[in-house]
Structures are given as C-alpha cells and as structure tokens.
Design a protein around this nucleic acid. Structure first.
Lengths: 243, 243
DNA sequence: GTCTATACAACGATAGAC
DNA sequence: GTCTATCGTTGTATAGAC
C-alpha cells in the first residue's frame, strides 16, 4: 500500500526543486542572472503570493503587499516578474507539469484494477496535501487567467479524471466492477478529492490526516464500483490494513 | 419521488420574489422609495453583478462595468448600494435565508431514512440548479467578506451537512445503514453536490440534467450506506424509477 | 541586484444639475 | 430618480541612484 512516507520519498516536492523548474522555464524573463539569489527570491515571491492570495484572493493582493511580505522592494520584484499577470501564469504553470507526471509515476507497475484505484486515490490525496496552497490557488484563480491558460487548467482537471475513468473501464472489462458510468464516477471521485484542499478548515477541525482522508474516499466510492451482491473487502483504515 | 417540476412549484425562486426579500431587508439603505422601480433596478444590479463577477471575480469587476451592464449610471447605482462591499453582503445574505429554509421544507413529512436521504439530495440539486449563479458566487467570494460574514457562510455550509448527518444517524439507529462515519459521509455528499454548480462546464458538456445528476449522486453514495451484504434497490434513473 | 521616488491610469465614491 | 462631471486614493509599473 502506498503510504504518505513512501510517496514523499518517491516525489521531490521541495520548494527548491519546484523553484528550479520555474527558473529554468522563465530564466529568459528573469533579469537576475545569479542563480542562487534568483532561486531564493523566487521561492520567497511564490510563498508570499500563495499565502496572501489564498487569504483574500489574487486580485485583492496588491504588489505593495507582496513587496512587504516577500521582503523585496517593488523594484526588485519587477526583476523577477514582468507583470502581475505573468506572476499568476508562472505559478499556474509550475504545478501543471508536476501533477500530470506524479499520478502516472505512482501507478507504474500496479496491475490489479482495485489496487490501481486505491493507489491513484492515495497518490492524489498525498500530492494535493503536500501542495495544498498551490492547488487551492489554482482552483480559485483559474478563471482570472487568459483564455488559453484557462483551457489548459480545464484540460489538467480532465486528465486527472481520465486516469480514474480508465481504471474503472479496465476493472469493468475484467469483470471486477459493475456497470456504473465510468466518466461520471470519475467526476465524482474528483469532486471528493478536491474537497481535501478546498475545505481545509473543515478537515483540520476534524483532526484528519491525509491518509485517513484517502481511506475515507476509498471507502465511500468502492462499494458503488463492485458488482451488486459482491461484498467488498475494503480496508477500514490505513493503520490497520495489512495489504 | 421529488421531481424538478414538483420542487419548482413548492418553492418560489423567481428573481422578483428574491428581490422583494432583499428590498425588505435593505430598504433602510436604499434611497429609492418607489417600490416598483426599486425592485426592477435591484434585479438588474444583482443579475449584472452575478454575471460579471462569476466571469472574472468580484474584485475584478469594476463599478463602471456594473454600471454599463445594468444600464444604470454610477450615480444611480449608489442610490441602491452604499458601497461595493455592501453589494457583496446584500447578495450573500439573500441566499442564506433561502437555502436554510428550503431543505427543511422539502423534508417535512418524509419519515423513512432512505426516502429522506434521496429527497434531501434531490431538493438540494434542484435548488442549486435554480440558483447556480448565486451558489457559484457565494462559494468563490466567501473569503472576501468580513470576518463575521465569512463565519456565517461556513455555518451555512455546515448546516447543510448536518441535515445529511442526521439522516444517516437516524438510518443507523433504525438498523438500515451500516456503521459509516456520519459526519465524514455528509461532508462527502456535500462535496459531490457542490460539483454541480462549481463545474457547470463539465456537466453541460455531458448534457446532464439536474435530475440525472441527483440520481448519480444517490447511486454513488447509497451503496456505501447500506450494511455490508445487503443489496440495495437503488433506482437507476429518475425517468424509469416508479417509487 | 536592490533600493527610493515617482509617473500615470483606473478605481470607488460624491456633488450638483436636471 | 437619474444623469454627468469630478474628487481623492490607490494600484501597477518604471526610472535612476546606489
């Protein structure tokens, strides 16, 4: 079974690794040429943006706010970004590359549909947990982007669903799952997974861990997948399960 | 079974009925004293605000935009609202009163837990379908409100969940449902219901109706509620079901 | 590379004519 | 009741010193 610890060792989600990718992609637009300083300040800018924008919205966050919280002056800020709009694009892009890859990587080598289903859910919850501020930002600010950027955001959403849809189709082909609508069920799973980063306050209040939440989603969806009459052997909790 | 038609005849969700309520609540702050004109223009302002704000966000919508799209001048606008912030409060409040009441009304007289469960889901989907622009606005702009207004928004969210939680608890007490976590399951149902107005583009693409979506949520959740080994007699579709 | 000081546009809000 | 014209403020973005 995919544990949170295992997941974290597989995927490098450190701020620095992410900022490296952003820097590599945008070094043409970034005026600062000394890589160590550039990476350090880029990390500050992204952190501050996510913190401020997730509190009151990206539009409400002024660049003066950002300047204060990132510890950089207005002038210095503009050595890294060309405009406020470019900042939101920059943040949006870095996550997109990452998320598409992670889910596929974690599923590699897992053949059994039931195992694939559970692994995919766990991987996604762990990923969105590690990068909750990015996922929250991305969801809330997607419609403020330009047309083609928004298209890309929607495509990312659909691609996640396709992974689940294909697992369900495979399970049906092998006679393991009943005849639920694969597309709709995948959309439902997506909605449940999204709740983890959209309603953090709620689950924090319930003192839930990412692993417990993944188990909950699995427990909620799996019974609807299995053929009527088939009693599923669903794991009740990550801690007690012995797969 | 609660159909969309039945629901609409039970609850008056017309713009005018809603604007009456808003006017009644805010007539102290509204300078325009002639009721018919006030109601007409209030409806225009609310419609335009929801349309514009849901496209690019409330912060991004300028009052000049609103003035143009509502057909009122800047000056006239300020005869109805005291400030931009008051406008968002006004819109937020009108829905809150409504939503709390509707769910309870539709459940009145329905005793059987399974029926209550299905009716509650149908009622909520129909309600959010009729007022999708309001629910979308409310979800997206909740964090831009003041502290006590945001508290109220969260409370509204929790109250919906409590209705579902209580239905599950009742079903468990009567031995009809298995021992799922009532609070978590209610949160999951809430997440599924939210998807209907948060991802309209997706379901429009799938050519789904509100009734079909309600059936889908029921079909997805019900199997996890029933006791292991118990085969549920879930209705496959609102059209073919004969309850 | 980073700073301070400033330009310029756009915003929310109001005054006063009609 | 509704309009046009205008106020003061605040936002994004840049120029030039260090």
């Amino acid at each position: 079974m995919l544990t949170l610890k295992e997941f974290r060792s597989q995927v490098d989600l450190s701020r620095m690794a992410i900022c490296e990718a952003v820097y590599a992609r945008h070094h043409g637009h970034i005026q600062v040429k000394k890589k160590p300083t550039a990476l350090r300040n880029l990390a500050r800018i992204i952190d501050a943006t996510l913190a401020l924008a997730n509190r009151t919205g990206f539009q409400a966050m002024t660049l003066r706010d950002l300047s204060r919280h990132s510890g950089l002056s207005m002038g210095a800020l503009y050595a890294y970004i060309g405009s406020k709009e470019e900042l939101v694009r920059l943040i949006q892009e870095y996550g997109r590359d990452l998320t598409a890859r992670v889910l596929c990587d974690c599923l590699e080598g897992v053949e059994d549909p039931v195992q694939r289903f559970r692994t995919a859910i766990r991987a996604w919850v762990y990923l969105t947990d590690a990068l909750q501020d990015w996922f929250f930002f991305s969801f809330m600010e997607a419609r403020h982007l330009g047309k083609e950027q928004m298209e890309a955001a929607l495509q990312g959403d659909l691609r996640t669903e396709e992974v689940f849809r294909d697992i369900i189709l495979d399970g049906q082909a092998r006679g393991l799952f009943g005849d639920v609508n694969p597309e709709l069920t995948a959309a439902g799973i997506n909605a449940l997974l999204q709740d983890w980063y959209l309603k953090r306050w709620k689950y924090r209040r319930l003192k839930m861990t990412a692993e417990a939440y993944a188990d909950h989603v699995i427990a909620m969806v799996e019974p609807s997948l299995h053929k009527p009459g088939t009693v599923a052997s669903a794991p009740t909790s990550a801690a007690t399960s012995t797969e």
